[in-house]
Simulated assay, not measured.
Amino acid sequence: MPSKEVVRCFECPEDIGGRIRSELQLLFQVDVVGLLNPYSRLLLCTALFTEAYLISDELLNTIKKLWSAGRNPYSAGIYLGRLRKRKPYLIPSTILASAVFSRLGRYVNSVVVSDSGLKPFLYGRDVLKTSVIKAYPTIVKGSPTFVLGIDGYVYGVGIATTNGEDIGRLDESEVVVKNVFDVGWYLRGGTQPKEKKFKV
């Protein structure tokens, strides 16, 4: 979480934790915290924005030792994603999606795009209908949607512009997923302030 401000990390309050768990349940259709056990504790780190992490009890004890020494972790555990004040409340990370899909053995809320569609996506462009090979349930308009390559790798996350069952009715040039984050961001100088990491 690079920032000019001091990063402050703390255990997630119950009300925010409940909202995060609810968002994850809707998105992945499974109890993500239970699925990724022993990473069952929520940690929030905030500066210019707030990011959430899943950590284990053992890691929390280590972090508490850092806090008692007047230090804060830069990040810890499994990166869940960035919190927002408006919908979608949570922009999930590609790291989280990969971990969940690996444990689930299936994909949800995802589109598989062709290589020719993946290349522009990795340069920050949106996913067009012409490049969508397959859509996994249950894509909902306005919700986070993961962008997969034909190799099954999670290359990014975006916001669906339509419901999954309506993708087939779109014109070939229409946008299916608006790019929010793609792994190409790191290659485009992501650690420098040239381009926002998340486009929402």
Rank of each mutant, 00 (worst) to 15 (best):
V7W: 02
T130R: 08
S102T: 10
L96E: 02
R169H: 10
K196N: 12
R86D: 15
G158Y: 00
V154Q: 03
G156D: 06
L26C: 08
S68P: 03
I20P: 00
L118M: 09
I78F: 07
L90P: 01
L59M: 11
F49K: 13
R71I: 09
T62F: 12
A76R: 03
I63G: 06
T145H: 09
R82P: 01
V157C: 06
R103C: 02
L43A: 07
K134Y: 10
E14W: 11
G34E: 12
K85A: 14
L44F: 09
T46R: 15
G18L: 09
A69T: 05
F10P: 02
V177L: 09
L59C: 05
P92N: 06
S93N: 07
D15G: 07
I95N: 10
A69H: 05
L59S: 11
G164F: 04
R125M: 11
P193S: 13
N163W: 00
R169M: 06
T50Y: 04
T191I: 14
K196W: 04
V108A: 10
G189N: 03
F49P: 00
I91P: 00
L59D: 08
S116C: 01
D171F: 06
D171C: 06
S3L: 11
K65E: 15
N179E: 08
L118D: 00
R106C: 12
K65N: 15
S56P: 02
L44N: 08
E14I: 14
E58Q: 13
F198D: 08
A69R: 13
F121V: 11
G70D: 07
R103A: 10
Q25C: 11
T62W: 08
L27Y: 04
S173T: 10
G149Q: 05
V157R: 00
T162N: 04
C12A: 15
L80D: 01
L128N: 00
D57T: 09
K194R: 14
A52W: 02
G77P: 03
K199W: 04
G164D: 07
L48A: 13
K119D: 03
E174I: 04
N163C: 03
T130W: 03
K87R: 13
V113N: 00
D151A: 04
S110I: 03
C45L: 12
K65G: 13
L42D: 02
T46H: 15
R82T: 12
Y186M: 14
F49E: 12
T62Y: 14
L42F: 14
I95M: 12
G105V: 08
K65I: 10
V140R: 15
F28R: 00
R8P: 00
T145Q: 02
I139R: 00
K197G: 04
A69M: 11
R103L: 11
G105T: 10
L104M: 15
A135Y: 02
G17R: 07
G149H: 01
R19M: 12
G164M: 02
G70R: 05
P38N: 06
